[in-house]
Structures are given as structure tokens and as C-alpha cells.
Design a protein around this nucleic acid. Sequence first.
DNA 1: GGTTTTTGATACGTTGACGTATCGCTACGA
DNA 2: TCGTAGCGATACGTCAACGTATCAAAAACC
Lengths: 198, 198
Amino acid sequence: MAAAARRAVDPGPDPRIARSRQVILAAALDELGAVGYGGFAIESVAARAGVGKSTIYRHWPDKLALIADAFETLHQAGGPDLAAGTAREKLERILRHVAAIVADSPFSACLPALIDGAARDRALRRFHHRFQAEARRPLIALIASGIASGDFPAALDPELAAEALLGAIFFRRLMTEKAFAPAETGALIETVMGPRAS
Amino acid sequence: MAAAARRAVDPGPDPRIARSRQVILAAALDELGAVGYGGFAIESVAARAGVGKSTIYRHWPDKLALIADAFETLHQAGGPDLAAGTAREKLERILRHVAAIVADSPFSACLPALIDGAARDRALRRFHHRFQAEARRPLIALIASGIASGDFPAALDPELAAEALLGAIFFRRLMTEKAFAPAETGALIETVMGPRAS
DNA sequence: GGTTTTTGATACGTTGACGTATCGCTACGA
DNA sequence: TCGTAGCGATACGTCAACGTATCAAAAACC
């Protein structure tokens, strides 16, 4: 019980552990972006991280566990401020943020690997879908409230509109060679949500 | 020159060759759908096809060549008839067709593998982008002509509208658990293209 | 300063896939 | 009917990654 008691009191047993986990997870994300889900290799992660292979196996039981943990680190919250402005202005702020992340970020780099992994692994698929559903909930709510306040056309279906807006951004990233630029956000909103009420 | 002369006269040198290629390509597509780009294994394709591994290497130099050929077979042309109807009706016919294919087809099954492969292999990426650009050209043209004829709002950007429509369908397939149903096509069009002019 | 824990290096056996080679068999084609 | 060309099966050597085990050095802790 001495160890348990000490652990209950002591918050950080050894800084080396946290440091190892952190650098390994970062390297694992690099690996996923570079070679994808199917090409992921523990020995390559160890090399990227500048770490012994044994250190990885001390912290994760196997490859799949590390991949799952790495994908989870991808999702730090924190979008733009939504306090001020009209519904349309808030919408534009959200979509610019999404466009920037989808165009260039660790998330963007790992997106093909995430989609592929979700197609192969049931647990990863559930995680992927669950997270995406949460991520677009505020957008749907914003559109719905914008409809209620008369900022957007009443004929709009909030979910479909959100999927069309996000869909355009993701479609560009995944199916074309030119990612969606933040500067196109205004035009996209005008196309999907109708012209700005003057 | 004797062989060349005979080949110029003889259309089908040996039916076994065509048959082998065909069954192997079909098995390769199955494999891509099942295990993806990174998990693709020639020996597994041979087993799926009920064919000796040596037969595959007789027809393709290596794994990547077979993968590339398999992806190309994915793209048979032939959309819906676009002769009759209003622009809106034609649009709905196209999108229903796309939705059906994206929801369930060999293309749909291989889509994650294609996206992942395009992220890893430069040649595959060029092929993917090129084909997708060709595939959405008629849709963009239809939207543009619909705008010109007054069937769609003049404020619409045809390319952005096409990306929003297709984007919603692909987004559903790749980022959510519920694929886009053909029955939702009408609502999607109303949301993105504005309410039906009465 | 001495003990304990984590770490990096390295070696190990195993597995699975690559791509090659060989060899009867069989189906095609004349 | 006979020669040829494509075929399936199988064995082969190679390689890369898996996950395990061991051990001395370094860092953290007290």
C-alpha cells in the first residue's frame, strides 16, 4: 500500500515518462501523415522520435494502441470566438477556421490516414464519426439560430447546409489538387446560404 | 516480323489472357476495398482470384502497377440521360446517380483506399485529381447553363455550387456513419440552389 | 550519494509478403 | 492431333517489421 499511497499524493512520478509519451505521440502523428495507416511502423516511429523501440513498447501494448492514441491527440478543441457579430459573421469565422485546418495542419496531414484507418478498424471508425459529429454540432446550432433570427432563409435545412459547407471544404482537400482557401469562404456562404440580406 | 504480322491479323491471341487479367483486376479491387492501399498484398489477390501468384506477375511487373490498373477499372463512364427536363430535373438526376454510387458501389468501397493511395503515390494522385475534375465538368456546365437560363440564382458560383453539392454527398460517406440517401437529393438541391421557382 | 526507475541499444526468433524460378498440366489454335 | 503458350502449384531467398528480452548508462528521487 506504500506505493499506492505515494502515488495518490505524488502527481508527477517521473518527468521522463510524460516526455517520452509526448515525443512518441508527435512522431506517431508524423508517421501517420507520411506513410498512412497501412504503412505505419513502430520502428520508424522510434527513429523519428529519437527513442528506443523498447520505450514505445513500455508505454503502449502494440501498434494499434499507439495509432489510436496518436489520432486522439489530433483533436484539440478551441475554435474562434463566437460572442460578437451577426450569424453570418460568426459563420464566416467558423468556416475560415475549418478551411485553415483542413488546408494545412496536422489534422490535414493525417486526414487520408484517418479516413483509411476508419475504413479498416471498427473502434477507430466509431471514434472518427463520434468526433466529427461533435465538431459540427456548434455549426448546425449556429445555422439553426440564424434561421430563427431571420439571418438565413427559412427553407434551409440546418444539417444539410452544414454538410454542404463543410463538404465543399473537405471535398476540395480530398478529391482535388487545390485546397479551399479561406478567402473563398464568403463566396461559399453566399452560394449555399443565399445572398447577403442588405 | 512474322509475329507482328500475325498479331496484326489475329484479334484475340488467347482468351485465357483476357480472362486472367479480368478476374485478377476484379480481385484486386476487392482487395483494395477490404484492406486498403497499405495492406494490399499480391498473394492475397491471387487467392481471391483463384489464380496462381505467377500469373499475376506474368501480366504486371509489380504491386504498384496492378494497383494503378485496378483503380483505373473503377471508372466506367455512363451517367443518367440528360436530354429531357428542366435544369433542376437534370441536376437531381445527376446527383441521385452520384449519391447511389458514393453510397454503395465498387467505387465507394475503394474510396478510402483511393484517397489514401493518392496521398502516398504521386502518379495515383495525379490520376485521381484528373479523373475527378473530368467527372464534375458536366455538373458544372449544367449549373452554369441553368444560371444562364434563369433556372438557378444568378449569384451562384457554378464551381462552388458543384463542390457544395458533391461535397455534401462525399462528406457524408467519409466523415459520418450515415451515407447520403438518394431521397435527400431534393432537399440538398433546395438548400444549396435556392427554393424551387414556382 | 546511493537507490530506483526509465531509457537506448542491441540481439533475437517469428511472421508475412515480395518478386523469381521451375515444372508438370491443360487449353488453345492450327 | 500435335505443338505451343499460358496456367497453377510450389519452393526459394530476401527483407522488413513485429513484439520480446537483456543490460549497462543516465536521470530522477530521497
